[in-house]
Amino acid sequence: GLPEGWEMRFTVDGIPYFVDHNRRTTTYIDPRTG
């Protein structure tokens, strides 16, 4: 799974992105792969 505090969501286009609730940021880069 994802690191603690992270969540995976999808855009309206079906593109996955990642929400970091710890820092309240979003990124398209998987936190597991950097």
Results as ranks from 00 to 15, higher is better:
V19W: 07
R9H: 10
F18I: 02
G34F: 14
D13F: 08
T26P: 07
T33L: 13
F10R: 07
G1S: 14
P31W: 01
P31E: 03
N22F: 10
N22M: 13
F10H: 10
V12D: 13
Y28A: 11
G14K: 06
D13S: 11
G14H: 07
W6R: 01
N22Y: 11
G14T: 00
M8I: 14
H21V: 12
N22T: 11
D20W: 03
T33F: 09
H21N: 10
R9D: 04
H21E: 08
T33S: 11
I15W: 11
P16H: 06
R24M: 14
F18V: 01
Y28L: 15
T33D: 12
P16W: 05
F18A: 00
T25K: 15
T27E: 07
R23V: 07
D20A: 03
D30G: 00
I29G: 03
E7Y: 06
M8G: 02
W6K: 01
R9E: 05
T25P: 00
F10V: 08
Y17G: 03
D30H: 02
D13P: 01
E4Y: 09
T26W: 15
P3W: 05
V19G: 01
M8T: 04
D30S: 00
P16E: 06
W6Q: 01
E4I: 11
I29V: 11
Y28H: 15
Y17W: 01
D20N: 12
R32V: 09
W6M: 03
P31G: 01
H21G: 08
T26Q: 12
Y17Q: 06
V19H: 05
R32S: 08
V19R: 02
Y17V: 12
P3V: 04
H21K: 09
M8S: 02
G34I: 15
W6D: 01
D30R: 00
Y28S: 14
T26M: 15
R24W: 10
N22H: 10
D30N: 00
T25F: 14
R24D: 14
T27S: 13
T26S: 11
T11E: 05
F10D: 00
G14V: 00
T26K: 15
V12H: 13
G5Y: 05
I29D: 14
R9P: 00
Y17K: 04
D13W: 07
G14I: 00
G14R: 06
D13V: 06
E4R: 08
R24Q: 15
I29P: 07
T26L: 14
M8H: 02
T27A: 05
P31K: 00
T11F: 01
F18E: 01
G14Q: 07
T25A: 07
I15G: 02
G5N: 08
V19E: 08
R32P: 07
T25Q: 10
P3E: 04
R9F: 14
Y17H: 03
W6G: 03
T11D: 15
N22W: 07
G14A: 03
E7I: 05
G5T: 02
T11Y: 02
G34Q: 14
D30W: 00
I15L: 11
T27R: 04
R24F: 09
H21Q: 10
D30L: 00
E4F: 12
G34W: 12
G5D: 04
M8A: 07
V12L: 12
T25L: 15
H21I: 13
T25R: 11
T26A: 09
Y28D: 13
P16S: 05
T27Q: 11
D20Y: 04
G14M: 06
H21R: 08
R23K: 13
F10W: 14
G1A: 15
M8Q: 09
R9S: 05
G34M: 13
T26V: 15
F10T: 08
R32H: 06
E7L: 03
D20G: 01
F18M: 00
T33E: 12
T26I: 15
N22R: 10
R23D: 13
R9K: 13
Y28M: 15
N22E: 11
E4W: 10
R24V: 09
F18H: 00
V19T: 06
M8P: 02
T25I: 15
E7A: 04
F18S: 00
T33G: 12
T27M: 05
T25E: 15
Y17S: 04
I29L: 11
E7N: 02
R32Y: 06
V19F: 14
F10I: 10
E7S: 06
R24P: 05
G34L: 15
V19I: 14
V19D: 04
G5R: 04
D20E: 06
V12E: 14
T25W: 11
L2G: 04
G1M: 14
R9T: 05
I15A: 06
P16D: 02
D30Q: 00
F10L: 10
T25N: 12
L2Q: 01
I15K: 11
D13E: 12
T33M: 12
G5E: 05
D20K: 03
P31N: 01
I15V: 12
T33Q: 13
V19N: 02
G5S: 06
E7V: 08
G1N: 13
R23P: 03
R9I: 06
I15H: 09
D30E: 02
E7D: 05
Y28N: 14
P3Y: 04
M8V: 09
R24I: 08
D20M: 02
R32A: 07
R9N: 07
R32Q: 05
I29N: 09
I15E: 09
Y17M: 08
Y28F: 15
P16K: 10
Y28V: 12
P31V: 02
R23I: 06
V12A: 14
I29S: 07
I15R: 10
D20S: 07
F10P: 00
T11V: 00
L2E: 01
G5A: 04
M8E: 05
Y28P: 12
T33I: 14
V19K: 03
D13L: 10
W6Y: 07
G5M: 05
G5P: 01
D20F: 06
F10S: 06
G34E: 14
D20T: 04
T11L: 03
P31Y: 02
M8N: 00
R23A: 13
N22D: 09
W6A: 02
P16T: 06
P16G: 06
V19Y: 15
R32D: 07
G34Y: 09
N22G: 09
R32G: 05
T27F: 03
E7P: 00
G1T: 13
P3N: 04
R23F: 09
T25D: 08
R32M: 06
G1P: 15
I15F: 08
D30I: 00
D20Q: 06
I29M: 07
P31C: 14
E7H: 04
Y28T: 15
R24K: 15
T33W: 12
M8K: 06
T11I: 01
F18N: 00
G34T: 13
I15T: 12
I29K: 09
L2I: 07
I29Y: 09
T26D: 09
V19L: 09
H21M: 11
T11S: 09
G34V: 14
R23Y: 08
F18P: 03
E4L: 12
